[in-house]
Design a protein around this nucleic acid. Structure first.
Length: 216
DNA sequence: CACGTAACGGTTGAA
DNA sequence: AGTTCAACCGTTACG
């Protein structure tokens, strides 16, 4: 939705490098990586990246104890917009995890009907090659040459993609879920993960009930 | 004051 | 190996 003509721009951010006028908090936190930033509440965040898992946990935990979102926001130094979003998502999905970032949606290269047939072929004969599937699709009259799955490279690669989407890496994902549910595992989807990967410049410390990111 | 949400600048990762 | 681009992120400010 673009702003209507004559309306005032909604957001008034400080220009890069500028400080927030009232709080005096620096916009940038000096880390060797140059990616840590401080919000108006004094909390550290990385622009574009999800909050660390334990903070997400803490948000829903506090809400569970009946603590109001505004208090959670102030105490954890997380913007109320973010608290609201995480709590909403938790109510809707039951998950505290951030959504899947990046990648592109699997493009529809075959009709659902054709996908089903490919699935059947593969189930009946797991050793079947993609080119054999393509030929069988044509022979069985499921497709003609114009409707057989086609991608940028070839129809064969498109069929491979369908197979990968249906049969590939299912256990991996489940395993990944389990690890993240365990909580303490560091993933690269969090400040912990990023900084942990490249060397820890931050450590999260609890001081008088507040979680603080400390630069070391 | 508390809170929902649009706009924004940013990151990510499959295609 | 490099690019594209639509998904998501958290913060900010408005209503």
């Amino acid at each position: 939705m673009s702003s209507l003509p004559g309306t005032v721009p909604r957001m008034m951010r400080p220009a890069p490098g500028q400080n927030y006028p009232r709080t005096g908090f620096p916009l940038e936190v000096s880390t060797p990586l140059g990616q840590g930033r401080v919000n108006q509440l004094g909390g550290v965040f990385i622009n574009g990246r999800p909050l660390p898992n334990h903070i997400r946990h803490k948000i829903v935990e506090m809400a569970h104890h009946g603590i109001r979102p505004c208090v959670i926001s102030r105490q954890l130094r997380v913007s109320h917009g973010c608290v609201s979003k995480i709590l909403c998502r938790y109510q809707e999905t039951g998950s505290i995890r951030p959504g899947a970032i990046g990648g592109s949606k699997p493009r529809q290269v075959a009709t659902p009907d054709v996908e089903r047939r490919i699935e059947e072929y593969k189930r009946d004969n797991p050793g079947m090659f993609s080119w054999e599937i393509r030929d069988k699709l044509l022979k069985d009259g499921v497709c003609d040459r114009s409707t057989v799955p086609s991608g940028e490279a070839s129809s064969v690669s498109s069929i491979s993609r369908v197979l990968r989407a249906r049969f590939g890496k299912k256990e991996d994902e489940d395993e990944c879920d389990k690890k993240e549910e365990d909580g303490e595992k560091k993933t690269k989807h969090s400040i912990d993960g990023i900084l942990g990967d490249k060397g820890s410049y931050f450590t999260w410390v609890e001081i008088e009930g507040d979680l603080n990111a400390v630069c070391r």
